[in-house]
Design a protein around this nucleic acid. Structure first.
Length: 271
DNA sequence: AGAGGTACCTGGCAGC
DNA sequence: TGCTGCCAGGTACCTC
């Protein structure tokens, strides 16, 4: 998916078009996403004005007077604002219409995405209640990571990809941050030093900030909300470079599987 | 409680 | 050309 930078980029791209706009229709073509789209979603939304759009973890939150739409892009999800009601393609599952010339279209080939409704405080929703700090806040730092890691035996890569520890760090940026600070992804989380965690936290912040600035990473399915590709891929040094020479030491980069995810690393630099 | 594996789903690609 | 198997940005949920 879209990792955090892609979700953030999507939010920023879509927001100016739909904020303070009134929903006039909701078209659900394929309700079977990760969880079924609530059958009464349309009743909740039509006539409501979008007051606020925010992001928590990789969830987008559309705030209305009567509740909140929680949207996740899953692995392959995408949101675009269309000015015309272009014919829907196979994977265009949901349209949220803001008048006749503004369609927020949710597209998701793999259907791991989700649209949910809550009339409670969304921060208390089961999907969001146990999420760790946002990585770009001061609450997330090396000391925090080190504290959380006491006694943990999971590989450090799985640890930083655990949303309960820190929100929004996915496979690409976890791989990249660990490469930058020369920590082997398989290293047990509890064995990584405080100093290394301080470097790691900074690397995570840096790589996420850069990716957001560049408009997200271009991967197979990802484009920004205006259809332009993200431009970050060219700057990734480890992810996607298995078999190529390490940019630091020229040792051939290798891949290992950690938690069923592929992890590229340098066998020489990353200890 | 923590660790590890499975499941959800489609499409693209390598290899035969 | 066509089949098979594997891989892909996520993460809730299950078992041990």
């Amino acid at each position: 998916m879209p990792e955090l930078p892609e979700v953030e980029t999507t939010m920023r791209g879509v927001k100016p078009h739909i904020i303070e706009q009134k929903i006039t229709d909701v078209i659900v073509r394929h309700p079977r996403l990760r969880w079924p789209v609530p059958p009464d979603l349309k009743q909740h939304l039509v006539g409501q004005v979008l007051h606020k759009l925010s992001r928590r973890n990789k969830y987008l939150l559309f705030h209305f007077a009567n509740g909140t739409l929680i949207l996740h892009l899953g692995m392959s999800g995408r949101l675009r604002v269309l000015a015309e009601n272009a014919p829907a393609n196979k994977h265009d599952h949901v349209d949220i219409c803001f008048g006749k010339h503004k369609y927020l279209r949710f597209t998701d080939p793999r259907r791991f995405g989700a649209l949910l409704w809550t009339s409670e405080d969304p921060a208390l929703h089961p999907l969001l209640a146990d999420i760790g700090p946002e990585p770009l806040t001061n609450a997330f730092n090396g000391d925090y990571l080190w504290e959380c890691a006491r006694g943990r035996k999971v590989p450090v890569k799985s640890f930083i990809m655990d949303g309960k520890i820190v929100a929004g760090v996915g496979n690409i940026y976890a791989t990249e941050a660990l490469f930058q600070v020369r920590i082997r992804p398989s290293q047990p989380a509890g064995k990584v030093s405080r100093v290394h965690y301080q470097a790691l936290a900074e690397a995570i912040k840096k790589v996420l900030r850069q990716a957001i600035e560049k408009g997200g990473t271009t991967l197979k399915d990802y484009t920004q909300s205006d259809g332009k590709p993200g431009y970050f891929r060219i700057e990734l040094q480890a992810y996607g470079h298995d078999g190529e020479p390490c940019p630091r030491c020229k040792t051939t980069l290798k891949t290992m599987r950690i938690g069923q995810r592929s992890s590229v690393y340098c066998p020489h630099c990353q200890r």
